[in-house]
Design a binder for these strands. Structure first.
Lengths: 192, 192
DNA sequence: ACGTTATCGAACATAATGTTTTATAACGTT
DNA sequence: AACGTTATAAAACATTATGTTCGATAACGT
């Protein structure tokens, strides 16, 4: 009896479904894509879909996990320069440029708000660990850290999504410079 | 034959439906509210609903229009201080405080992304007209005006939604001060 | 009191979801 | 190469929500 039957079909079908959803999102937007659309595009049976994923949202979130895994591998392979938010943001801008279709489908205007919500949560956590060294210099900062993080992540995501939705007329480096110029003065005036 | 039969039932039914949706959004979130939920709560017949609104989204957008109308009336009644983005943002923070339930249902986390998208578009336009006096001092600004506006509106909305979703632990004035401290240095460094 | 019309309620068609079942085909193992 | 195992396909099905239609009723303005 085969105990470890690592059927390659499983991986293949998973990827077929993920790729189909990705393409369909770019075509008609996440909201308008039905499960029927996905299985037709992927040439996968209905029951097979539900053997892999609970629903459309589960499939979508598996794409998000793919992006997250790819990104974390990329982040670890980067030479650690400093821990400032603006070196982190540059890494993300560049990673988005290297995985354009995935990022556009997830974080672009076609992707709906689901991934954006998760991205916000994920980046907030990432920012916190990145900033844990530089503890608050001020005892009573004029802007509480929670709001500061929320603001900084939102500001970053606004540039990222604008960039993805407007065919990236500027380089990743240029976008990151804009982000720095907009946010660094205010943030540093608060952190001293 | 009555030519101008301004039936008060029409206005009343409209409001019943709007109020029902508003309450239901706060209870279970926009996505989870069905048309059936709305008409049950409002005690309105199914066919009557569709005589008033095309679908759930139309009803929701009519709420957004209500907010917009209320806000513009409020804006005109304000003594015109200056045209800076941060005096405009203060007006919005205060108006949100005065119309808490409406703003929370539309712009809060329960409201979905629909209203947020419209709000972003609306505020961007509003910001442009507010800023039309102060033309760009620099010929070639490091950050194009389009991105600047997008950033500023996103940053503002991030504070507004955070505020609404966290039971407003600070006053409207305090929130606006935070917004100013975070964004003004960066924006002015760009506009000279 | 009258004609008008908004509303109700029920019935209906449609479309998408998620489940179940059976036969088939692809897989890893021996 | 033949085996047992298991992922898959396809069809049938129940369920749920949407949006439409129609006739009777009640509320409205005149």
């Amino acid at each position: 009896m085969p105990e470890k039957n690592e059927d390659r079909r499983i991986q293949r079908t998973r990827k077929l479904l993920q790729d189909a959803l990705l393409a369909l999102i770019l075509e008609k937007g996440y909201e308008d894509v039905t499960v029927q659309d996905v299985i037709d595009r992927a040439n996968v049976g209905r029951s097979t879909f539900y053997a892999h994923f609970q629903d459309k949202e589960s499939l979508f979130l598996s794409e998000f996990e793919t992006m997250r895994t790819l990104f974390e591998r990329h982040l670890l392979s980067q030479p650690a320069t400093d821990t400032s938010p603006w070196s982190l943001s540059l890494v993300i801008f560049k990673h988005a440029q290297d995985n354009l279709q995935l990022y556009t489908a997830l974080a672009g205007k076609q992707g709906g708000s689901l991934a954006l919500t998760h991205l916000q949560t994920y980046l907030s956590a990432l920012l916190r660990t990145h900033l844990k060294q530089q503890s608050t210099k001020k005892d009573n900062p004029p802007v509480p850290p929670e709001i500061l993080a929320h603001y900084l992540v939102s500001a970053f995501m606004s540039l990222l999504t604008w960039w993805l939705d407007n065919n990236r007329p500027y380089s990743a480096e240029r976008m990151n410079e804009m982000f720095r110029q907009l946010t660094q003065p205010g943030v540093e005036s608060i952190l001293q």
